[in-house]
């Protein structure tokens, strides 16, 4: 029964994630447009774009190697595997014992490497510049994520994502300073990873400032569709991760029945909608940062995460 429930929730979770992924960027874009007083494109627009692109043949540069062809698939699969481990409406999914925060971080890094290689492969300036920037941001974003994971691990006693989320849901930890600091640093990392506003501007192709888009300039057709799908999956993953860590209420415990799943699903949808609204408000309120200030911003996030871990050492008497 437990296994059956695990299989069922895992399948439902994956289906839900795949269906909702294209809607996430579309909804954020739509919310932003509404707040700016525009009517905005329909939230389904990314889905339509992807469908159109999927029907088209990719056009590759003459000197493109196999990397350009393989990279989008690697990135999408890595992101999808990571996403399969992030709990959404229920705990105790089939892959939960495998789901580890470090593994998620590693899979995201793999996807990033694939993206950067694809940007470098053809050898155009913009691709190389975008890849260089992406990797230099990653040099701060990845350690920040890992230090935040360290904080969670000290608090929950494990790096297993499902177990950490379940511990937080039970609420026996209470409010912790370290958790608040780690949460802030994770928010900064999430913005940087998804090329959102203060770090990168998602809706424009402004040559000098773009990071994510610069790496995709050479891809077309279904490769571009895959890249866009990967970006959507990554945004969904980060929102789901933040929801699982910091808004753990309402998720169904492992081994629960369909009623608890339905409640968990409802709660999860509300949480995701709230996070998307917060992202839209934030992006409308803030201006893009100069590229050279981004390492400072992410460095501050890293320091906050370090601070969180250091304070935790004090309070738990480990130091």
């Amino acid at each position: 029964m437990q296994t059956l429930g695990g299989i069922l929730t895992q399948a439902l979770h994956l289906a839900l994630m795949l269906v909702l992924a294209p809607l996430v960027p579309g909804l954020v874009r739509w919310l932003k447009a509404r707040m700016q007083g525009r009517r905005g494109a329909s939230p389904l627009q990314p889905l339509r774009d992807m469908r159109k692109l999927l029907r088209k043949r990719p056009v590759l540069a003459e000197n493109a190697s196999a990397v350009s062809e393989v990279a989008p698939y690697v990135a999408v699969v890595a992101t999808l595997v990571a996403l399969a481990q992030v709990p959404s409406f229920s705990h105790g999914m089939l892959l939960a014992p495998l789901g580890d925060l470090l593994l998620v971080a590693g899979l995201l890094a793999l996807a990033r490497v694939a993206l950067a290689l694809a940007g470098l492969d053809v050898g155009t300036q913009f691709g190389g510049m975008g890849a260089a920037r992406e990797m230099s941001f990653a040099a701060f974003a990845e350690p920040t994520l890992l230090v935040a994971v360290l904080t969670f691990a000290i608090l929950a006693g494990t790096t297993n994502l499902d177990a950490v989320a379940a511990t937080f849901r039970d609420g026996q930890l209470g409010l912790r300073v370290s958790l608040a600091l780690a949460g802030l640093s994770l928010l900064a990392v999430a913005l940087a990873e998804n090329a959102r506003m203060p770090v990168d501007s998602p809706g424009t192709h402004l040559e000098l400032t773009m990071v994510h888009e610069a790496m995709l300039l050479e891809s077309s057709g279904r490769h571009l569709a895959l890249w866009e799908f990967q970006a959507a999956l990554k945004l969904e993953l980060w929102l789901a991760l933040l929801a699982a860590m910091f808004l753990p209420f309402g998720a169904a415990p492992g081994g629960a029945g369909p009623l608890a799943w339905a409640l968990g699903l409802l709660a999860w949808l509300v949480k995701m909608a709230g996070l998307m609204l917060a992202l839209a408000v934030f992006e409308n309120a803030i201006a893009k940062m100069r590229v050279f200030r981004v390492p400072e911003f992410l460095g501050a996030a890293l320091l906050l995460a370090l601070l969180a871990a250091a304070l935790l050492f004090v309070s738990t008497g480990l130091a």
Binding site: L173, L175, V177, L184, A300, L304, L307, T316
Partner: peptide, 24 residues
Amino acid sequence: MTFGQLPYDIAHLLGGAMLLLSFV
């Protein structure tokens, strides 16, 4: 490991917020 009760947690959180604002 010791985990405090809510009143202490809130006091902590406020202290942490002050530290954070110092960094800001």
